[in-house]
Design a binder for these strands. Structure first.
Lengths: 237, 237
DNA sequence: CGATATGTTGAAGTTAATCAAATCTTGTGG
DNA sequence: CCACAAGATTTGATTAACTTCAACATATCG
C-alpha cells in the first residue's frame, strides 16, 4: 500500500474514540497492520452469521447494517458514515456478525482491523480498553435513542424525530438536510414503507413545514417539526 | 451493614461479567464500598436526566428502564432481573441517566456501585476494563436484538418473538413461562396496548397455541409460535 | 437512449389504537 | 376473614393510521 494511504488511515483512526489516546508510534503500528478496502455501491461487506474476525471503520462513504426479514424486506439497524466504527461488539463477544453490512454511497472506503490486532492492543495498552469502554457506551446510548425513535407511535413522529436528530437541524435555523441514503432506505430504517414516507413528505411540503427536492430537504418550520416529534397531531384544525 | 450482607453482595457481584476475573480480596473491597438498597414495589430508583454517579446491579427482584412519552405513556427500554447490571454506559459517558428506573417486583434489592469506585477499579486493574468491554458488548448486541423485536411489523410477531427469546422456551418443550411483569408492562415493552396483548393471547388460546392462566403461560405449540415469530400470518385459512 | 430501480399517487384493505364498560385481582383496613 | 378500593385485565364497537396493491412518473447508469 502506498505510504500516503497509510498517513490517511492514521488520521482517520486518530479521530476514533478508541484510538484517541494512543501514542503516535502505536497508532502508526495499528495503521500499518490494517486493511483499507474500497467498495462499489451497493456492495456487501459481510453477511449475517458470517464469522467475525475484524471490526471496521468508515473512512469515506456510508454503510448500512440491516437484517433481512422472512418476507425479504430489510430492517435497517443503523447507518454509519465517515469516522464511525462497527462490529466491535460482535468481534469481542460472539465472533459472528449479527447483521448484514452493505455500502450505500460511492466511493466507500473501509478500514478493517483484525480482532487479533485489537486484542493485542488491549493487552499491551492500558488506556485502550478504557477507550473502548467509552466508545461502546456511546453506541449503547445511541441504540437507546434509536429504540425511542422506533417506538414512537406514528410514522410522522418518527420521521420528525429523525430529522431533528440529524446534525445541523437546530430549532432556530432553516437547515437544508442532504439525505445520505435513498428514501427507500430511510423508510426502512424508520420501519415504514416508502409510500408512507413519500406521503408524509408531501403533506409537510403542502403544509409549508419543509421544502423537498430530491434528496435535499429544507426545514422551513422547525418549531412545528418539534411539536410533531413530541407526538402531537399534524393538523389541529 | 451486617457481614452476612457483605458476603451476599460478594457472591452476587462475582456472577457479573464485570467482576468475574477480579481477585478475591479485590472483590471484597468492591463489596465493602457499595451500597445495598432494598425497595418497595413499585418505587423509583432514579429519573431521566438525574445526574448519574453510580451504576446498579440487581440482586433480587426486578427493575424496568423506561422513558415517558409526551402523552404520558411509558416506553419500556428494558427489564432487568437478578444478576444483571445497568447504567454503566450512562455513568462512564454522559453522567446523566437517559431513562427512568422503577422496581417491578417485591422485594427488589439493588447494589449501587459508585462511579468513583468503578473508575478506580478500572485504573488499578488491568483486566477490569476488558471485562467491561465484554459486558458492554453483550448489552449492545442485546439491544440490536431488541430493535429487531420492536421493528417486527405486527403485534403478534413481536409477542411470539418475545416469548421465544425467554429462557427455557425451546422449540421442543412445552415450557410454562411465568411472566415476571404485569401484562400492562409487557405490552408497553412491546409497544402495544394492553388491549391488543389481551386479544392476541385470547386468540392463541382459542387456537390451541398456548394455555394462559393469569401470569403463567404454557406454550402448547412452539412450532407454530416460531412460524408467527417469522412474521407469517396466524390463520392462513 | 433504454433498462432498471427509485419515487409518487390513488384506492382498498388490515391492523392496531382508542373509547367505553364490565369483570377480575390484589392489597388494605376493619 | 371479609368488604372495599384501586388497579389490572378482558371484551366489544368504532376509528385512525398504515400497509398493500397497482399504475405511473422520474432518476440513474451503462
Amino acid at each position: 500500500m502506498p505510504p500516503e494511504s497509510r498517513t490517511a488511515i492514521t488520521s482517520t483512526l486518530r479521530e476514533l474514540p478508541h484510538f484517541r489516546l494512543l501514542k503516535r508510534d502505536m497508532l502508526d503500528a495499528v495503521a500499518a497492520a490494517c486493511n483499507l478496502r474500497v467498495y462499489e455501491t451497493p456492495q456487501p461487506v459481510f453477511f449475517e452469521k458470517d464469522p467475525c474476525r475484524s471490526f471496521w471503520v468508515v473512512r469515506a462513504g456510508g454503510v448500512k447494517l440491516f437484517r433481512l426479514r422472512p418476507d425479504g424486506r430489510e430492517q435497517v439497524i443503523n447507518h454509519l458514515h465517515s469516522g464511525q466504527s462497527f462490529a466491535e461488539a460482535a468481534l469481542l463477544n460472539i465472533g459472528v456478525y449479527p447483521v448484514n453490512a452493505m455500502t450505500t454511497e460511492p466511493p466507500t472506503e473501509l478500514i478493517e482491523i483484525s480482532g487479533e490486532h485489537l486484542r493485542r492492543l488491549m493487552r499491551e495498552n492500558d488506556g485502550m480498553a478504557a477507550a473502548m469502554v467509552g466508545s461502546l457506551s456511546m453506541k449503547l446510548l445511541d441504540l437507546v435513542q434509536r429504540i425511542d425513535e422506533l417506538s414512537a407511535s406514528n410514522a410522522a413522529t418518527r420521521l420528525a424525530r429523525h430529522f431533528l436528530r440529524l446534525p445541523g437541524a437546530g430549532p432556530s435555523d432553516r437547515p437544508t438536510i442532504e439525505l445520505s441514503v435513498t428514501k427507500k432506505d430511510l423508510a426502512a430504517s424508520l420501519s415504514i414503507t416508502p409510500e408512507t414516507l413519500s406521503r408524509i413528505l408531501r403533506k409537510w411540503q403542502d403544509d409549508g413545514l419543509i421544502e423537498s427536492n430530491g434528496r435535499s430537504i429544507t426545514i422551513l418550520d422547525a418549531a412545528q417539526l418539534m411539536q410533531l416529534s413530541d407526538g402531537e397531531d399534524g393538523t389541529p384544525v
